[in-house]
């Protein structure tokens, strides 16, 4: 499965590049990631979120990078869901913003992991990546992922409707958090 998405961020390309290049930042906006740990100059360990498939983890390596312009990576070893990605950063015509173009490739296996991944992406798989990039934009332009009463859990917001009502959370509901 190949997913592409793009957004424009009102920050210079070196800054957007630097944020992405610190791969440990990816889980702040990519919904399917729980954690990314840097293990070497070009290597890292990625842990997926439960809805993506329980205990799905893999190692990855950066294949190619051009500061301020491009990063290309792929999973290594026998990943449960072999995957690869490229992100390009291009100055926007306004002279202040950066266009971010992302391509992700997933080699979705059979079995329960494949099912979980397919379920995670649903009928409109590109929607997930679009939402990831919307959050990247929020984080870089405003400092964090924006929350509302209807969607209070940031990147764990479930996109399905109905949401919880647009009404403040009770203490109990707040304590329970996103899994409630």
């Amino acid at each position: 499965m190949e997913l592409t998405a793009t957004t424009t961020i009102r920050k210079p390309a070196p800054e957007v590049y630097a944020f992405w290049r610190d791969l440990e930042n990816l889980p702040t906006f990519m919904a399917h990631l729980e954690e990314v740990r840097t293990t070497g100059d070009r290597t890292s360990h990625w842990v997926a979120n439960a809805p993506f498939g329980k205990d799905v983890q893999w190692d990855a390596e950066i294949l190619d990078e051009a500061p301020g312009e491009k990063i290309r990576w792929r999973s290594t070893g026998d990943a449960d869901v072999p995957n690869a990605g490229t992100v390009r950063f291009m100055p926007a015509p306004d002279g202040v913003s950066t266009e971010v173009h992302v391509v992700l490739l997933y080699d979705i296996p059979g079995g329960p992991v494949g099912k979980a991944v397919a379920k995670y992406f649903g009928e409109e798989p590109h929607q997930q990546l679009d939402d990831d990039l919307r959050r990247l934009k929020q984080v870089l332009e405003t400092g964090e992922v924006v929350r509302s009463d209807g969607a209070p859990w940031g990147k764990r917001a479930r996109k399905e409707f109905p949401q919880r009502p647009a009404q403040p959370l009770s203490d109990a509901e707040f304590a329970k958090g996103a899994e409630a």
């Binding site: 332009e141 405003t142 924006v146 509302s148 969607a151 996109k159 949401q163």
Partner: peptide
Amino acid sequence: NTNPNAGI
């Protein structure tokens, strides 16, 4: 940036 339901 302010609409968490921007996708909809």
